Amino acid sequence: MPSPLDAALPASAEIEALLTASVGARTTIERVEPLHHPWVLRAHLAETSGLPDTVVVKCRRPEGYGLRSAEELTRCEHAALAFIADDLRLDLAPGLHAASPDSRLLVLEDLYPRTELAALLHRDGHTAALDAELTAFASSLGELAAASAGRAALFNARRTALGTGADRLDDWEHAYAGLWRNGLARAAAFGVPLPAAAERDLETAVAELADPGPFLALTNGDPESHNYLTGPSGGGKLIDFEGAGFRHALTAATSFTVPGPDWLGVSGPEQVEAFRRALARTVPEAEDDQRVGFGLTSASMVWVMTRTGRLNTLDTRSPGDDSRTQMVTLLESGARTAEAHRVLPHLAAWCRSTATLLRHRWPDTDIDTAASYTWRER
């Protein structure tokens, strides 16, 4: 029996009609192949009419995630890619060849043979060459933030024109979206409640993200290395703008300070500096050590508290499960970030003490976690 997703996938004729209307000349598809997600396809073109031999077709997902419906995810990516190419004039993301009026189908530049940076890190480890790619990734994130700072109204106008309601344009929390509150409650239930002083630190961090000031800029919403494609000749590109929105720019640098879902450990002082240099081109406040340190630590700590909501789940997992070690590393890296910038000391102390408790409660996690970009087997 066909799945709902199968029914939602476009026929070749629908993609051909969309491209033909876009380029003004008949375009014929020779074949279509699925890619890493069932709603992402590669179309091979027989008659290109000036287009490349292949394009990528991104279809509406069967359901939404986070704060956004499936419809809003594609509308947002549509708006973001047009905004980056036409308003910011940046070559940092895949080009948009065509889009259906309701954004259900997006036809994008095919970035092959570029490869996910995360896949290369997983395969080869943290080599000098890949460290340079990480730095290029960070620079790209910073360049996007620098070019977009102060231009939220223009981006939101594009979203509104595509059907986004005015009540859906406040993106400052995005993936954090209040989930840090769950982390706060789950930590208490786990037996490691935040002391009042640490909770005040957390509230201060949240307030910083809620009022970014000059740091309000566009991020793709998931600034992890699997969303950066790179190749042997360079020219890396950022991908996946379904979660794009204007929020505190330094939320885009947290993947270099605290581990995301794929990593046991990260170590990215060079990457943070590359991001900061790029951002400072248009945001002079990025030269201020104190402001950057506080913003970066705030973003990192809110992410830590968001992931802390998993404590009870991890407690039921078997010894040796990587996700347990990742939690310890997450807490310790958050504390290191705060200590390096001499901010949020009470929250940093709570992270340290909780990590110590976990190392005793989960003896399999009592190991050296200082290695850079260590992959987590999931």
Rank of each mutant, 00 (worst) to 15 (best):
Thr27Tyr: 00
Arg31Ala: 09
Leu35Asn: 06
Leu35Ala: 05
His37Lys: 15
Arg42Cys: 05
Val55Tyr: 00
Val56Lys: 08
Cys59Asp: 08
Arg61Gly: 11
Gly66Leu: 15
Glu71Asp: 14
Ala79Trp: 02
Leu81Tyr: 06
Phe83Tyr: 00
Ile84Ser: 09
Ala85Met: 07
Ala93Ile: 04
Leu96Trp: 12
Ser100Ile: 06
Asp102Asn: 14
Glu109Trp: 04
Tyr112Met: 06
Tyr112Leu: 13
Leu117Thr: 12
Leu120Ile: 04
Arg123Tyr: 05
Arg123Ala: 11
Gly125Val: 03
Asp131Leu: 04
Leu134Phe: 03
Phe137Cys: 01
Ser140Gly: 04
Ala146Tyr: 05
Asp167Lys: 10
Arg168Gly: 00
Leu169Gln: 02
Trp172Tyr: 13
Tyr176Met: 12
Ala177Asn: 15
Gly183Thr: 12
Ala185Lys: 15
Arg186Asn: 08
Pro193Cys: 07
Val206Trp: 07
Ala207Lys: 03
Asn220Cys: 13
Gly221Met: 05
Glu224Met: 06
Ser225Asp: 13
His226Ile: 14
Ile239Val: 15
Glu242His: 05
Gly243Tyr: 07
Ala249Pro: 14
Thr257Leu: 00
Thr257Asp: 00
Asp262Phe: 10
Ser267Ile: 05
Arg281Thr: 15
Thr282Lys: 12
Pro284Asn: 09
Glu285Trp: 13
Val292Leu: 14
Val292Trp: 02
Gly293Val: 03
Trp303Gln: 11
Trp303Ala: 10
Thr308Pro: 00
Arg317Val: 07
Pro319Ile: 05
Gly320Trp: 13
Gln326Thr: 03
Gly334Leu: 05
Ala340Pro: 03
Pro345Leu: 05
Ser353Ile: 11
Ala355Phe: 04
Thr356Asp: 15
Pro363Asn: 01
Asp364Tyr: 03
Thr365Asn: 09
Asp368Trp: 04
Ala370Lys: 12
Trp375Ile: 07
